[in-house]
Design a binder for these strands. Structure first.
Lengths: 254, 254
DNA sequence: CCGTATTTGTTCATTTTTGTTTATTAATAT
DNA sequence: ATATTAATAAACAAAAATGAACAAATACGG
């Protein structure tokens, strides 16, 4: 068996099972474990797999291991700062909308100590976090998204229209290079643009990582917001444009 | 099984069930409890779960609190038996409504292992428990009750009317000596009687402690239900009456 | 064919993982 | 409350996997 064949064999097995063991491969290919290890090292150098003790796994199937998680943690710090800044906008008793997402979850985490808010949300985790607090919490019904615990229903629009919302805090998962906020579904886009329209102040909470990403449906241009809280640094020209439009940009350091 | 696979197995099980036990995992993965504990410690260090005595729960504080809350309940053993009996009613793929309450929470706990249900509920804890499962979960929106995490909205009626519900599982907090199911608010009463009317089968889940208690608004007489699951022993005369009405009574021993 | 480069195997010290034992701690019932 | 049971953490031992160094085998170009 040629070295190339061995490596193909390893990758095939890996793709089939999600993981491989050194000892097993050694027996199957009639080589010593040392050779298998060297093969795995080479394949790892090519980013085709991730080595572990005793074997290897597909680099995609280790959704919880350190690299990914450290990265996630780093963003949490930024998100907390963005959330902190957002919370400072809400001076007195207010009715606010909290979009689904991790940044708004952090905001909810700060707001749970208050007692003068009416909070409307469609995020199950946010609702669970807040319902015991002194604030009044309204949950928008609908089908629960399995991955996120967020709900969305076509009936929201009529409900939303009847309420006076002081602040709508929206998160964003994808902002194009032309600074359009985008989202995967029409329903979500419709709701969010309605919120921007109806709320006294619409606030966009986005960390740097969301820029330059594209999703299917346009919600609005980010200059349609009243406030943008982010750690992304815009160029001078765009900043001037935002200022002319009356958009307040709060830049988070870190 | 590679260490990394073990940890993935643990996280998968955790995401499905909300909690895991050391002993169980040890048996399932053929390792000693000590190894499981070390795995759990590692995962906790990555903030993916929260350790407890004998196991672990998801770090999203939710489950931790819920389990704790439920444990405090008095008649939990009876409720589990009632829930078990109720679950046996649901043979194939069905659309069901789960009322808010601890008995229905126990039912949800059993149903989370299924994958052929559409579940409609207005109970935050039940929704949180079920939304990750293979079932489709719809949450009814509204203002969240601080004490219970249940929601209720005037708009439910129109929503409910448009859905075909196979089974409506209702709990009861107060059943008068004349066997009327009662509840504190008109809104709840209205919704529940509508559910009894609309569902193919309406099922009442009540333990003994709920009888002889009176609340403000009448929902229905218990003989309006199709099935009653309880550990309360009725006198012969009333049993005869129920039988004539075509009500199935499932008596839970213990 | 020879000499060189590459690959593979072997040995062994080191590291990692797992199991075992035991004292301590936490949960439970009495 | 206290006793009892179960779960845990710590320390140690055993097993498994690893990586480094070196030797042997193989491939390859001249």
């Amino acid at each position: 068996m040629l070295p190339i064949e061995r490596r193909k064999y390893i990758m095939d097995k890996l793709n089939l099972n999600g993981s491989v063991k050194v000892e097993e491969l050694a027996k199957e290919m009639n080589v010593t474990p040392m050779t298998v290890r060297r093969d795995l090292d080479k394949l790892e150098a090519e980013d085709l797999l991730k080595r572990t003790h005793g074997g290897a796994v597909l680099s995609t199937s280790l959704y919880f291991e350190e690299e990914y998680d450290v990265k996630k943690e780093k963003n949490i710090e930024i998100k907390k700062k963005i959330a902190q800044s957002a919370s400072e906008l809400i001076k007195g008793p207010s009715t606010i909308f909290l979009d689904a997402g991790t940044t708004t979850y952090e905001l909810a985490n700060i707001l749970k100590n208050r007692n003068d808010l009416v909070i409307i949300t469609g995020d199950l985790k946010i609702a669970s976090l807040l319902y015991r607090t002194e604030n009044e919490v309204h949950f928008l019904g609908g089908k629960l998204e399995k991955k996120t615990g967020a709900v969305l229903s076509v009936e929201w629009n009529t409900f939303i229209e009847r309420i006076n919302i002081d602040y709508a805090f929206l998160g964003g998962s994808a902002i194009t290079n032309q600074y359009y906020l985008t989202t995967p579904t029409f329903e979500k886009a419709k709701l969010k643009s309605k919120l921007i329209e109806l709320a006294d102040k619409s606030v966009l909470l986005v960390d740097e990582s969301k820029f330059g990403v594209k999703s299917l449906v346009k919600i609005a241009h980010i200059k349609d917001f009243d406030v943008i809280i982010t750690n992304k640094v815009f160029n001078n020209e765009f900043m001037k444009e935002l200022k002319e439009k009356g958009v307040e940009v709060r830049l988070i350091g870190g």
